[in-house]
Every structure is written in structure tokens, then in C-alpha cells.
Design a protein around this nucleic acid. Structure first.
Lengths: 198, 198
DNA sequence: AACCTTTTTTGATGTATATCAAAAGAAAAA
DNA sequence: TTTTTCTTTTGATATACATCAAAAAAGGTT
């Protein structure tokens, strides 16, 4: 249960209200079902094989999504920086075991809501269901389709440049190994790209 | 406006009801806002640069999503076969111009609903909003995330085999050139994969 | 500062898949 | 059937990026 006085909470409510404006009473009912959390760097938020039981709204920090392949190599599938929704969507919506891990790359702050609570709020408030539709549309569909196009049509150098233009500060916050894995290239190749060797 | 007597319509209402069960009165209100359409092979349903103003439920047929790149080459991004939702989701939800075309690869049948009508039905019926959430979750998120994983982690041969296991009859319905473009490989490479040369 | 650990860079070589050119096969048209 | 057109296959070569090995640089720790 979240008291609504301090700055962080204002940031969070703005995040919620920017997705789709909720009536005051609904906003209040929704917000009070969120829990404020902090997790340190390296904390594993969701583990491969476990079902994703929460939806998180990160207000500060950085996280990676990754899975460990047959050879034991960790492959990053996604990054979230600062104000972002976090969840393994596939596992959350199906309530089946996740195929990936979610781990923080910085000390991070977030608000969480349980899947069952989310479902009952969707049943309870028509406006919250409309809000959730906007959330999915904006945060999953748009971003994800973009990523498909990148993987399908851009080469390694172009993928890196696009990531840089989207997150100019990413190289100060996330290691080259983690970035290269997300870009689907090796660390060596990314190093050469940065040195301008292609 | 759709009379609900014949077989095709039953197939369509089943499709709707399988996503999420709607109360009879809501189902009736929803169904009557759909229009039945047929389009011949090669018909362009949506053109690059035009905004996607409809959501379609294909009940029979085949379609491809593609865009034309700088060199004038057509690149397939998606296939839909038989009972499937069709739309350029990014364009539909943003109501901004589409970056891709949608074209039929066979004579096809479908039901369509206009974007603005869809929006007003979402406002009007809480249960229809819950239905739409399930639709997005099942038809966009799950499929799309799977495609990212395929592009990121499978090689050309594995991508082809996975497509075959999902649509065993695809080679009889869709040309090798169209399939290879979707798999993000050349026609020559796909031909060699099929001949077992890798 | 010196030491240890992690991250990044460099070099040599290998591999999956692309490109270009042309032949073979299948489908459609005359 | 013959001709034309479109689709698929084959061969030779090129290229983007991976892999393996090792050195260099950067961060942390005592």
C-alpha cells in the first residue's frame, strides 16, 4: 500500500496517468494495490522456469532480460532503462513458466502489482481495462514490432547505431558484453564496430 | 451488417467467442458491426503509407505482410494463414501511416470492423474491452515474442523447420520466394536447405 | 601504489549465408 | 505441342560476422 506524498510517487502516478487518464476514484483504487520495491544491482527479479506473477513499473534503474542457452551462454533479449514496464509478457498473460530471466543491472526502484490483483481490477473497473489496453498497445506491441524489424533488416553496425540513438547514455550504464548479446553479435564484433573497423 | 445463419458466420462467431466469452447482447452488438468481405489473390488490403483503419478477421485464405526497401526489394515480415487476425498493429493502434503492405496470396474471406467503431464498442461494453485485451495478448504479444526469439537464436535451417512444423502445408500454398523472404534468407539458400545441403 | 579481477581490444582464421550467373523445371499462354 | 514466363536449383565466389587466443586497459581491493 502506497502513501501518495513524496516525489517518487508523483513520478509513478504520472506514469500511470500518461498511459490513459483514469477517474480519481479508480486511480486511487488502482494505486493502493501497488507495492513500492527496491532491488540492488544483480538481483534476479524473475527466474527462467518460474511463472511471472507480477507486473512491475520501474521508476529508476536498469534491467536485462536473458535466457541461458544449451551451451550455458547467457543471451540478452531485452533491456529496460529508467521509466519502463517490466514483465515477461508471455509468461504473465499465459501464467505459464517463463523461458527467460529478468535481472537488474543497477540498483533499481519500482512498483509492483500481482497478476491476480491486476485481473480483478480489470474486472472491476471498465476504465482500468481501457487503460490496460493502452498499456499493452504502447509498451508491448509498438516496441516489439520495432525490434523484429531491426533484427530482420539491419546489420550489426546499424543495430548498434539505432540502440545508441535511442539510449545515448547506454554505454556508460551497461557493459559491452551485455549490449552485444542484445544486439545478437559477439563482444569482439561490437568492439570492432565501435573502433570503426567495419 | 451480418446475418448469422450460414456456416461461415458460425465459424466467425466461434472465433470471436473462443477469444473470450461475451454476453449474448454484447456479442450481438459487436457482430452486427462487422462486415463480410471477400478479396481475390494478389489484392492489396493495406498499402505502405496508408493508415490502417480496420481490423480484419480472416476466416479463409492466406496473406503476407511486406515492405519494399530502398533497393526496391520486397521483404516479407509476416504470414497469416486461414483463421487469423489481420492488421498492421502499429499503424492501427497509433492511427499513423503504415510502413508495410498487406496482400492476399490466395482468394480470401474475412470480416472487418472499422477502427472508430471498434473504439466506441470498447467504450460501450466493459466485457468487450476484456475481450480485446485477450485478443491482443493471444494474437499479438505471444506470436510476436516468439518471432523475435526465432530471428535472434535460430539459424536459417532451424527457422525453416520451425515454420514447417507450424504450417506443414505452407510449401503447397506459398512460393519459395515468399517463404525465404519471411525467413530472412535468400531463395537460393532456402532451396539448398530443402535439398539437405547444410 | 601494487595486485587482482573484469572488461575491452586486437589478430588470425573459420563458417553461415549472400551475391551473381546460369541452367533446369514447372506453369501458363499461344 | 510449342513458346513464353515464372519458379526453383546448382555452382563459383564474396562477405559479414563468429570463434579462438591473447594482449591491453580499466576498475576494485588490500
Amino acid at each position: 500500500m502506497v502513501p501518495m506524498q513524496n516525489n517518487l510517487d508523483v513520478k509513478f502516478t504520472n506514469f500511470i496517468q500518461n498511459i490513459f487518464l483514469l477517474p480519481d476514484d479508480v486511480l486511487e483504487d488502482v494505486i493502493m494495490h501497488f507495492q513500492h520495491l527496491e532491488h540492488p544491482k544483480n538481483h534476479i527479479l524473475l527466474q527462467q522456469g518460474k511463472t511471472c506473477k507480477h507486473l512491475w513499473f520501474m521508476t529508476k534503474g536498469a534491467a536485462r532480460y536473458f535466457y541461458t542457452n544449451e551451451e550455458g551462454k547467457e543471451m540478452n533479449t531485452w533491456f529496460s532503462l529508467d521509466t519502463q514496464v517490466i514483465a515477461d509478457t508471455t509468461s504473465l498473460v499465459s501464467q505459464e513458466p517463463s523461458e527467460e530471466n529478468i535481472q537488474f543491472l543497477e540498483d533499481s526502484e519500482m512498483y509492483s502489482i500481482e497478476y491476480s490483483v491486476l485481473q480483478s481490477l480489470l474486472q472491476k473497473h471498465h476504465s482500468f481495462a481501457l487503460w490496460y489496453i493502452k498499456l499493452i498497445e504502447q509498451h508491448y506491441v509498438a516496441q516489439i514490432e520495432d525490434r523484429i524489424a531491426d533484427l530482420q533488416f539491419l546489420n550489426a553496425t546499424e543495430r548498434y547505431q539505432k540502440l545508441l540513438s535511442l539510449y545515448p547514455e547506454i554505454t556508460n550504464r551497461i557493459s559491452l558484453g551485455n549490449i552485444s548479446s542484445y544486439l545478437n553479435i559477439t563482444q569482439e564484433t561490437l568492439s570492432r564496430i565501435r573502433a570503426g573497423k567495419f
